[in-house]
Amino acid sequence: MSADTLAVQVRAEDHRWQRDQRQAAYQAMLEADLRLTGVIGTFTTSGGSVVTDESRGLITTARGEVYGAVTLIEITGPQQVRTAAGLLLDSVSTLIAFQPVQRAQVNQWARALRRHEELRTRFRQAAREALGYVDLDDSTADDPGIE
């Protein structure tokens, strides 16, 4: 095996390892975010929210998972995903700041939750781009032979 061939293989393995690390970090972020918003949603109703020691503990644990995932993303990058993760983290902080949601704040909280969902979608898109995934609709839109 030539030195050039070996160098190409090493670079390919490094690239695959980096991609795997990024994918794990991005997946951890999405899972932690969904867990956190699920926990918050469990305690929030149209009449406001009920905050108990149990709900505070669940929110704190889930928030820690989100922070841990963001830390991994800060390490693995790239910048576009770091930025999207930072915006999502800021949105998490906004959602948590509303707890407990008072009856008068329900509409504001609902807007913040919709914004959070938009930011989650942006994060997911940035992650997909960074990993090299392209939607089939995007890649086949100009090819009439693919349905």
Rank of each mutant, 00 (worst) to 15 (best):
M1D: 13
M1Q: 14
S2P: 10
S2K: 09
S2A: 09
A3D: 13
D4A: 15
D4G: 09
D4P: 02
T5C: 06
V8C: 04
V8N: 11
Q9W: 02
V10G: 03
R11K: 13
A12M: 08
A12D: 13
E13G: 09
D14F: 10
H15N: 12
Q18S: 15
Q18N: 12
D20N: 13
D20Q: 14
Q21L: 15
Q21E: 14
R22Y: 08
Q23H: 12
A24C: 04
A25K: 01
Q27W: 09
M29N: 02
L30W: 10
A32D: 00
D33V: 12
D33C: 08
L34E: 14
R35K: 14
R35W: 04
R35N: 11
L36Y: 08
L36S: 07
G38L: 07
G38W: 07
V39K: 02
I40D: 00
I40R: 00
I40T: 04
G41M: 08
T42E: 12
T42W: 07
T42P: 00
T45W: 10
S46D: 14
S46G: 15
G47I: 01
G47W: 08
G47P: 00
G48N: 04
G48I: 02
G48L: 05
S49C: 06
S49K: 02
V50E: 09
V50C: 04
V50W: 06
V51K: 04
T52F: 06
G57S: 13
G57W: 04
T60K: 14
T60D: 15
A62L: 06
A62Q: 02
A62I: 03
R63E: 11
R63M: 10
G64R: 04
G64N: 07
G64A: 07
E65W: 02
E65C: 00
V66H: 00
Y67G: 05
A69E: 01
V70R: 11
T71I: 06
I73T: 03
I73V: 13
I73Q: 01
E74P: 05
E74I: 04
I75T: 09
G77I: 00
Q79S: 10
Q79E: 12
A85H: 05
A85Y: 02
A85D: 02
G86N: 13
G86I: 06
L87N: 15
L87S: 13
L87Y: 13
L88Y: 03
L88A: 12
L88P: 03
D90E: 15
S91Q: 10
V92K: 02
V92Q: 10
S93K: 11
I96G: 00
Q99P: 03
P100S: 06
P100G: 01
Q102N: 09
Q102S: 10
Q102M: 11
Q102V: 05
A104T: 10
Q105H: 08
Q105G: 05
Q105N: 11
N107H: 11
N107R: 14
Q108D: 14
Q108H: 08
A110K: 12
R111H: 11
A112P: 08
A112M: 04
L113V: 03
R114T: 15
H116Y: 07
L119C: 04
R120T: 13
Q125V: 12
A126G: 00
A127Q: 00
A127E: 00
A127L: 02
A127N: 01
E129V: 14
Y133G: 08
V134G: 09
L136W: 10
D137Q: 12
D138G: 06
S139G: 10
S139M: 12
S139H: 03
A141Y: 12
P144Q: 06
P144F: 09
P144Y: 07
P144W: 02
P144I: 10
G145D: 15
I146A: 08
